[in-house]
């Protein structure tokens, strides 16, 4: 199986405090990798490192075969074209309508005509069941709608790699199930490799191919869902037992 992301001995500290220490794991092609861990475990900092939003202090992060610490600005930009990020609180631009938000990456990074972009935006809105939100502003959307709009923007360029930060937080169970189905569809049909940071155990059961469990900035477990359920590691066992 081809590795899309290779993380080797990644360590990071903030204000003299160790946040990540010696993190190593791989994300494989066309797989959904779920990063798990309690609040404050270092998941967000890890995600920021993977997205190139924080400088790498120690270790190595290789995405699509290239070390992101050694990338030039242009290379990083090209990498971003192949990545979609679904932020926890949406990250939509408040000054633009939902339609404009979704169209933005295509308008800025492709040579597609406005009419075609418009068509693509409508099809993405249909995909996330948000057809009535095209002309609305992000502030006019409910939490769940905001999430779906953010996902539509994240996948508008059909990225090869999708990062989802807490996609299910704040969603009702029905919306959560349809969001999970959509994530699975994106993996199945478009061959996306997906990294999901989540706490939703029901989601993990539905979508996870591989689980990376982080505790106090360290990877304490990595493996498939079945392996995770049988793991003897205390934290992992506790996590799944409590969730049951």
């Amino acid at each position: 199986m081809r590795e899309i992301i290779k993380i080797k001995s990644l360590s990071a500290s903030l204000g003299g405090r160790n946040i990540l220490s010696d993190i190593s794991f791989n994300v494989y092609d066309k797989e959904i990798t779920v990063i798990l861990g309690r609040s404050g475990a270092g998941k967000s900092v890890l995600l920021k490192h993977l997205l190139g939003l924080m400088d790498i202090q120690e270790g190595e992060v290789v995405i699509f075969g290239k070390d992101i610490a050694e990338m030039q600005e242009e290379e990083q930009k090209r990498l971003y074209f192949q990545m979609g990020v679904f932020y926890q609180n949406g990250g939509l631009l408040n000054a633009l309508t939902v339609g404009e938000n979704i169209a933005l990456p295509l308008e800025q990074n492709s040579n597609l005509s406005h009419e075609l972009i418009d068509h693509i935006v409508w099809s993405k809105l249909k995909l996330v069941n948000l057809l009535n939100a095209y002309y609305l502003y992000p502030s006019q959307l409910s939490g769940g709608m905001l999430k779906r709009a953010a996902l539509a923007r994240a996948i508008v360029m059909d990225p090869l790699l999708l990062f989802c930060d807490e996609p299910g937080a704040g969603l009702d169970p029905i919306s959560l199930v349809s969001l999970d189905k959509l994530i699975l569809n994106l993996r199945e049909q478009l061959g996306m490799s997906i990294v999901v940071v989540t706490h939703e155990v029901s989601s993990i059961f539905r979508i996870a191919d591989r689980i990376v469990f982080i505790d106090s900035g360290q990877v304490v477990f990595q493996g498939t869902l079945e392996e995770a359920l049988q793991a003897q590691n205390k934290q992992v066992k506790n996590y799944f037992d409590t969730a049951k």
Partner: peptide
Amino acid sequence: IDSIGVATLNY
């Protein structure tokens, strides 16, 4: 075909 290709056919 990707989803943009599908949208193109629709368009």
